[in-house]
Each structure stands twice: as C-alpha cells, then as structure tokens.
Amino acid sequence: MQPDHLIKKLKDQDSSAFEELYEMYSQSLYGVIYTIVKDGVLAEELLQDTFLKIWNNANTYTSKKGRFFTWILNIARNTAIDAYRSKSYNNKKQNLSADNFVDIIISNEDLNRKTDAIGIEKFVHKLKKKCIKLIDLLYFKGYTQKEAAEVIEIPVGTVKTRLRKCLSDLRELVKE
C-alpha cells in the first residue's frame, strides 16, 4: 500500500490502515518514547496513547506539515515529554523502590543471591552517616546530584566522589 493511500484510509477511519500503520511504525515510535522515559512499561502505555492520538487526529495531518512519519514522530515525542514532565512521573522517580536501588549497586550475580530488595536498607544503615544521607537523597528520594549537593552544602564534584566511595563501601558490606 502506498503511504498516501494509507494516510487517506487512516483519515477515513479504516481500521486496516491503522493496523498497517501500527505494524510499520510501532517499533520506531517505541524507541523514541523509551529513550525519553527510560521505562519499558510506561513506554508501552505511551505508545498506545500515541496511536490513539494519531487515530483521533488523522484528519489534521496534511503534507504541508511535513512528512507523515515526521508528524507521527512528533506526536510520540511530545507524548513522552509530557509524561516525563508530569507530576506523577516525577513523584514516581522520587519514590524509587528498593528494587531499583539493588539494581544500581549490584555488579555481579553472586550479590543477587546474597541480598534482596527488602534487606538492602540494613546494609545502607551500616555506612557512615554522610553516605546514608547521600544515598537517601539520590536513590530513595530521587534527587539529582546537583540538588543533593545543595541540600548537603557541598560541591557537585564532592557528591560524585563521595557517592563512588559510598557505593563501593556498600558493595563490600553486601558481599560479607
């Protein structure tokens, strides 16, 4: 099917055109969305939202707006950016689960067998107070390194160096 013919059928709300469009472009759009939100489940949801927007707004597309692929790519990109900037997404980032934290500190399969997400906090509490504070801000509360530096009142470079040392210490505790 020629793209112009496919677009015309899509504008006529032809479901077969929608299915073909999904087959042609879903992987590309998913890749764009995932690159922005970095969450597979959320990217799948946003991909569905994107295709709903394409379906509902097909009549607004004209070749004067550019290529069809560029038009749907912008819809996907804007959908992902809107989600990324949303309050619920930011709250989700700030309330990281212990599972995410375990993935960050674990560097080999042996550690997977020795610790679980629920038990990780007891290891964190064995660290120095400055490490506990830094890890709490960065991984459990979702602060950026810059934000953590402002809270602790130290330079960003010191945050990075301290974090490297703290995570190294934490790895050693988990191995024991």
Rank of each mutant, 00 (worst) to 15 (best):
Q48P: 05
K129F: 06
R85P: 05
V159L: 02
E147S: 08
Y61P: 14
K87A: 06
N100Y: 15
A83W: 06
D82P: 00
K11R: 05
G119L: 12
N108R: 10
A80P: 06
L96M: 12
I54H: 01
Q48Y: 08
K160G: 01
L52M: 04
I75L: 01
P155A: 14
E172F: 09
D99K: 15
W55L: 13
F69C: 00
R85I: 01
Q94F: 11
I118C: 02
T60F: 11
D49M: 08
F68T: 05
I118P: 03
K165E: 11
R113N: 12
T60Y: 03
K93Q: 15
K175L: 13
R162D: 04
F123I: 06
N91E: 15
A117P: 06
Q145P: 11
T62W: 00
N91A: 12
K64W: 01
K129W: 04
I120K: 04
M24Y: 03
A43W: 12
V41W: 04
I154W: 03
K133M: 10
Y25A: 01
D82C: 07
D14A: 09
S63W: 00
M1E: 08
V32F: 06
N90V: 15
M24W: 02
L10P: 07
K128M: 00
A17Y: 00
K141Y: 10
V151Q: 11
K93P: 14
A117V: 03
T50S: 14
A83T: 15
K122V: 00
N78L: 08
M24F: 00
I104S: 08
S28R: 09
E23K: 11
K92P: 01
E147Y: 10
S107V: 13
S63M: 08
I135T: 02
K114Y: 06
R162H: 12
A43M: 10
V124P: 12
I75H: 04
N108Q: 12
K64L: 02
N91F: 15
E20V: 15
A76P: 02
V37F: 14
S63R: 08
T62K: 05
I75Y: 00
L73M: 11
V159Q: 02
F18W: 02
D49K: 03
D4S: 07
I152V: 08
R162P: 02
Y61C: 05
A148C: 02
S26K: 11
A17S: 07
E147I: 05
K87S: 07
L6F: 03
E45T: 06
T144C: 04
D99V: 15
T144H: 07
V151E: 12
S16N: 09
A98T: 15
L134I: 15
E150W: 08
D4G: 00
V37K: 14
K92G: 01
L10Q: 13
F51I: 07
L170Y: 06
K92M: 13
I132L: 04
N91W: 13
Y61W: 04
V32N: 09
A149S: 12
N100A: 12
S26M: 08
E44Y: 04
